[in-house]
Simulated scan of single mutants.
Amino acid sequence: MIDLQMIRDARSRIGGHISSTPTEPSSSLSELFQVPIILKHEHRQKTGSFKLRGATNAILQLSDAEKAAGVIAVSTGNHGRALAHAARAVGSKATICMSELVPQNKVAEIRRLGADVRIIGQSQDEALHEVERLVTQDNLVELPPFDHPHIIAGQGTIGLEIIEAFPNVETVLVPVSGGGLAAGIAVAVKSLHPNAKIIGVSMERGAAMKASFTAGKPTQVEEFRSFADALGGGIGLDNKLTFRLCQQLLHDVILLTEEEIAAGIRHAYLEEREVLEGSGAVGIAALLSGKVGHLSGPIAVILSGRNIAMDLHRQILNGKIDPNHEAF
């Protein structure tokens, strides 16, 4: 399993390759809720999301032969972009398999970074079948988006930065999909501050981790378009790490409607002057929705990504909240 030393080692390894993003109080949210609220600006990471941490930690531990063979992953967009960036930095080549639900702006950026892009089916699970085929056929090295120790440890470095900036943090609101981010942050934060609560946040439309908690085992869900597109996809029926870690360490998982996610995006822009994609805004949205429950601070909110199509962002700001908008 993942431990604090693995996360500390990851931090030393990736330090020269990623940004240590700001961890700052939010005056607007702190005033609104009358408790200290901290924003972790991980959307300002080099590739626009936290995913660069895990991808970099994983790729830096490959052998020269593995780098030469090339890496492959399934993705809802942000992991693919991060892996393409990290692969190019070490002279490797990435192949990224995605479903037709991935927004076109994310697909285009992955192609710009030189990756071989494969669009397969209507779900991440369908795209994963192509990954499995190419691993066997072309001897590529699979670096999955969440269920991998090096990926989880890389994402956990965010937790170290939060604790260093605010050692007395009481609650951390973290977006949860496959669970790599939530698991990594939970291990880091609770290893250093055992009484802290880690609360996952996802969307109502196809939240695989929440459904798996309810079933008591990894469970497949139907995928839908959502403003929080990066939180789509399953956790894998053969999940080895993130399901158990999240099951053990998360206090709760909150589910949000599309309207609530849109409200989080709007608040981030109008009050914080930050452009966030839906998955990056779910922590703010959870607070605004009232679903977090009793609030005692400090509360840290992970702003996990900014890679939203700007046409869609404008539509949301103008009050048009159709998640099937053509900008997808």
Rank of each mutant, 00 (worst) to 15 (best):
H43F: 13
L231C: 14
G216V: 07
E109Y: 00
K51L: 02
G264Q: 05
P103W: 08
I199G: 01
G159M: 05
L241S: 01
S49E: 06
I2V: 15
R13L: 15
L270R: 04
F213M: 15
T171W: 10
I110E: 04
V189K: 10
L83Q: 10
G77N: 11
L295C: 09
P22C: 08
N105S: 12
N78Y: 00
D322V: 08
L288I: 07
G80V: 07
F213V: 08
Q247E: 13
H150V: 05
G178R: 02
G178E: 14
G283Q: 06
V221Y: 12
P145T: 05
A188I: 01
A58Y: 09
L287V: 09
S191W: 12
A285K: 04
S19I: 12
I151N: 05
T21H: 00
E258R: 06
E260C: 01
V131K: 05
D229N: 12
I162E: 02
H251P: 03
D64C: 00
A188G: 07
K291R: 14
R53Q: 06
M310N: 07
L128K: 12
A327P: 12
R133H: 14
T214G: 04
I316E: 00
L173D: 02
P36A: 08
G180I: 03
D229I: 10
A211K: 12
R273W: 01
I163W: 05
D3P: 01
I152F: 05
E31L: 07
E170Q: 13
N105I: 11
P167H: 15
V117H: 01
G293A: 11
I151M: 00
V174F: 03
A65Q: 12
S99I: 07
H43G: 05
N195K: 15
N239K: 04
R133E: 09
S123Q: 09
L303P: 06
S279F: 02
P175C: 13
M1Q: 08
R205G: 05
E31R: 07
H43L: 09
L249W: 06
G236Y: 02
E164T: 11
V292C: 12
G293H: 11
I198P: 04
A263E: 10
L4C: 10
A69F: 03
A69L: 06
T242D: 02
M203R: 02
K320S: 08
D238W: 07
A87I: 08
E326S: 12
I198K: 03
Q315Y: 13
A207D: 03
E272C: 00
F224C: 14
E100S: 09
D238M: 13
G305R: 09
I235E: 00
I158M: 11
A300C: 13
M1C: 07
